[in-house]
Amino acid sequence: MSALLTIAGLTAHYGDFQALFGVDLTLDQGQTVAIIGANGAGKTTLMRAITGVAKVTAGSVRLAGEEITRSPAPDILTRGVAMVPEGRKLFPSLTVEENLLIGAHARRGNGFWTLERIQTLFPILKERRLSPGTALSGGQQQMVAIGRALMSNPQVLLCDELSLGLAPVVIKEIYAAFPQIKDSGTSIIVVEQDISQALRVADHVHCMMEGRITLSGRPSELSRDAIHDAYFGVNHA
């Protein structure tokens, strides 16, 4: 396995406020990495820095060896980093199908993910294809958002807080699609507050607190206590 995405010493600011402090992270080809942490830990900022939305003040992001730090957001998307944004952000005047089709806007050439394959992954999206995107339930909207990101045939799929505001059974249904997404060769970074869900899907977990990665490891290597400490910043000395 080779590193597909390499993040080194990534630092980001919102004005005077420093949100990321030298974050290091690698994502291998075909790997799923989870980033967990409480509100305000810097998880979303990290996603925004990778996709070129947040301002990076130091450090680098490399995709397959190529520097993409500070590239314009549309370029990063075309090169193969797509994001499922927090809150889904579907287009209300577009149908479910159109919401998926617009995901292919930045796409270059053919790839594995087509409209049909996404409708096979989430059959409900075929059934409701002519409904307005925002007429769907929260979970179904999340499926549209994931499908829309996949339509660009990304090498790296970033998922920001997929489980936010969804019932546990719906969250389970959405994560059930992950093995198929992984099988397509797409590498995934999920940002989650739902720790148990993150541990279930990820090959590697990073815990963030106050803009730093405080704990990393394979899910099997991490004890509940260690995660608890890293998540809440409690020190059991």
């Binding site: 996709t51 549309p74 944004p85 287009f91 005047s93 806007h105 930045a106």
Partner: peptide
């Protein structure tokens, strides 16, 4: 494709930008 992009921009310009429009 461009028309679809325009419709997306009408809905939410930032979200449209994030899907590459």
């Amino acid at each position: 494709r461009m028309g679809l992009g325009l419709q997306a921009i009408r809905d939410n310009e930032n979200a449209a930008r994030s899907v590459g429009v």
